[in-house]
Design a protein around this nucleic acid. Structure first.
Lengths: 219, 219
DNA sequence: CACCGCAATATTGCATGCAGTTTTTAATTT
DNA sequence: AAATTAAAAACTGCATGCAATATTGCGGTG
């Protein structure tokens, strides 16, 4: 039995449609036809409507009364706002982590960082991307603030499609690792201000990479 | 005609039920009976269900599959997490404001601060509370980051019921005004780090006041 | 007297249907 | 041929109904 069997149809639909949007199967601007989606997922319109409303609250889809809901369009301007917000949230989590991580959590972060060192050596990009997620997740959790952590996770999820290419740039891995080192050191040693600054610097670089990409693409 | 006539029933219900929760008419833990609410608002269960699902996404109500949705309970621990998150968001907005407010926005903030000085002199608590909202709203907007600003607004709205009493403490007004002065000066002069620190200090004091209150109440 | 199981009731999850609005299509006019 | 308008189709918003699950009240048992 699948674990999702316990949830309602609406929940399953919200997850499924949300994934479809995030993975690009449903492109921004796509109209979400209730009848069509209902048929596609072999349910009635009711759970589809409820799922759409859930997704609207997360910002993934836009609700237009009396007209079809559409997959939310993200303008470059909005995307930059999102990247800035993401960076500030990450930096804040790093700051709080420096102040409130338990010794065990600090140790775990250190271990994760060291593990990633090996991945850099072997130039394992896929492995590094995965481990990087964990590294950042540890910092979210270390903030001991579920609200900020949830916001960060949500935004990261949302931005993920736009971050895929970031580690392709040559020399990106060692550079990331060096930045992580500064962040990790600051957090483990309880230096909140440095942790904040180092994380902000780290994510700003990601943002710059992205801005460079869109600028190129737009040209 | 009311401007809300344009919205759907679901939107109106979400707003109405949300207000009822925030204003305390619907206490935490209250079961949201779909049939009862439908009857109360003279609509069918469908829009009620959709409204509840919207509210669930904002965290105001908790959805328990196959069982009644309930008004979300806020434990003291969660409340503290919310206050911390709120403070960090405000501080971040202040930081960004220091960096990116336009001259006009800086001027506006300065004016608002000066206006509040008069309210302190005349000991107009109600007026000050209202002006205080505007002061902080100006800083959210000044961050030029709608995502962070929205998060801050949402959290503030959520915490508002727990902040009501904060300005009752004797001497709170002049003290707030002095803190605002530091924040405003830092923002206007573009000193991001100081703006961040000053705001964090400001909101921490509010939090402390609150913690003191609950501690007293719990005793 | 407390506790457990079972039937009756209440309530949610979902399907379906209808009315009103938007969108599409096609015909008519300039 | 392009534009305008009117009719048709499609779609959303909401109401209602049914099946499945949870809750409540009650009788039996230890």
């Amino acid at each position: 039995m699948t674990s999702s069997n316990k949830q309602t149809q609406t929940d399953k639909l919200a997850a499924e449609i949300g994934d479809a949007i995030l993975s690009g199967v449903l492109a921004p601007g796509t109209r979400l036809d209730e009848h069509g989606l209902a048929e596609q997922f072999a349910v009635s319109r009711t759970p589809v409507r409820e799922a759409i409303r859930s997704l609207a609250a997360t910002g993934l889809v836009e609700l237009r009364p009396r007209r079809s809901a559409v997959v939310a369009e993200i303008t470059p301007a909005q995307l930059e706002v999102m990247f800035v917000a993401m960076g500030e949230l990450e930096a804040t989590c790093a700051r709080l982590s420096a102040m409130s991580m338990t010794p065990i959590e600090r140790r775990r972060l250190q271990n994760q960082h060291e593990r990633m060192g090996a991945l850099v050596e072997s130039d394992d990009v896929a492995g590094f991307i995965d481990a990087n997620l964990t590294f950042h997740a540890l910092i979210y959790a270390g903030s001991h603030n579920s609200i900020l952590a949830d916001m960060a996770v949500g935004l990261r999820r949302r931005l993920d499609p736009y971050r895929r290419a970031q580690f392709r740039s040559p020399g990106r891995l060692p550079r990331s690792q060096a930045e992580h080192d500064r962040i990790m050191q600051a957090i483990v040693s309880g230096d909140a201000a440095t942790a904040h600054a180092a994380m902000l610097n780290h994510v700003s670089l990601v943002e710059d990479t992205f801005i460079g990409l869109t600028a190129t693409r737009a040209a």
